[in-house]
Amino acid sequence: MELFLQTLVDGLLIGGLIIVIGVGFSLCFGVMHIIDFAVGEWVMLGAYTAFWMVRYLGRDPFLYLPVIFFLYLAIGYLIYPLIHRAVSGRRHNPALMGLVFTFGLASLIKGGALTAWGFHVRSVTTWLSGESLALGVAVVPALRFAGFAFGVLATVAFMLFLKWSKIGVAIRAMAQDRVMAELLGVDTNRVSALVYAMYTGLTGMAGVLIGALFSIHAGMGLKYTTFAFFVVVLAGMGYVPGVIPAAFLLGLLQSFVTVYVSGRYTLLAVFFVLYLTLLVRPRGLLGRGW
């Protein structure tokens, strides 16, 4: 029973962190209809950036969270025009060209990281590492709780931004009807660039937390790309609020399979549920997908 509760709490805490990745990814799809195959690679890059900053500048990785956010915001903003070019223009099937482009981008980032940093597994320590927190019946590492808290805070802040800011309104309008939004004076190109930039920024930041919680290596992106796909498919593609239950479900699935079956089967379980969802409820568990 104790193990069960511990697993439950662990799963929920991880789920809270995964929400951040899912929200940006889902919004990106909702607004631009692009699936970013590089999503896990942004997580990996965020984690590595934190690692190198700590190595060369010292101090705590959490201190660099805002820096990393703005760094990846800028990178995403600079990459978006390339994606825009890939999906627009005189070629048959523009949406697929966008997919191919992000697929190439993922391969490029992953290959670059493997070449530059090799297959070593690295880790960062934070002031919370080694601390633990009694949470009712379960004892959790403080770091996990920090990841959860970060996830919830970042998601709430992002949701508030979408709800109340002028750009947020424009983003939501675009997700509903791109042409109409453009007719009403939304600069769709700039808004798309901002959405992509915020998505890469948020994902890079999530990478820092993930890197602090688990290990950092160049091949880690695969797992988080899988997680992001899982979350958006279960949520319904492009339906942002659905991400929250889907992410918690993923966290629970992962932690229960790891504890009760074996860590080797986690990804397989994730793929299996993903396939079942596509088979039974392709528009997401809530049926609100695109």
Binding site: L278, P282, W290
Partner: peptide
């Protein structure tokens, strides 16, 4: 059969996941 009824994006995701799943299976 499930994914080719949907948009191309679903198919791309499903095939990608399938490829990774097969590799996991072969490793396990």
């Amino acid at each position: 059969i499930p994914t080719l009824r949907l948009r191309g994006a679903y198919f791309a995701i499903a095939t990608w996941a399938f490829g990774e799943a097969v590799r996991q299976v072969a490793t396990v």
